[in-house]
């Protein structure tokens, strides 16, 4: 069962991330620590073991579903924030538009001759 094997690796790396955070006190999530460690491990091995890709591929496809339960929570606090919504929505959408423009423009400029 390669996928199960791979899942065990992913879970182990997440748990290692927990331990790293526990001892270092870094304010980041264990998932990110685990992801970076996974990237480093794979570059040391020099290939992706089939067990890892068997577990990682479907999980990546499910990312959107996994954040859904949290996202739905916003529909249940609509009343609490009455009168604040306009400012919040304008700040988020206009702010995002501005930062998207900045990112695209800046990276295009910086990449210059790298761009194809």
């Amino acid at each position: 069962m390669p996928a199960l094997n791979g899942l065990l690796w992913l879970i182990s790396y997440w748990l290692i991330g927990e331990v790293v955070i526990h001892f270092s006190g870094l304010p980041i999530s264990s998932g990110v620590v685990g992801m970076l460690l996974m990237g480093v491990t794979l570059s040391v091995i020099g290939r992706v073991p089939s067990s890892i890709s068997a577990a990682a591929q479907p999980l990546i496809g499910l990312l959107a579903m996994l954040i859904m339960p949290g996202v739905v929570g916003v529909f249940f606090i609509l009343d609490e924030l009455a009168g604040q919504w306009l400012a919040i929505l304008v700040a988020l959408s206009l702010g995002t538009l501005l930062s998207v423009v900045t990112t695209l423009w800046l990276l295009k400029r910086l990449m210059g001759h790298h761009a194809h």
Binding site: W14, G17, M35, L42, L59
Partner: peptide, 8 residues
């Protein structure tokens, strides 16, 4: 584990 999977 899904976040860790992004290391791939």
């Amino acid at each position: 584990p899904a976040t860790v999977a992004l290391g791939m």
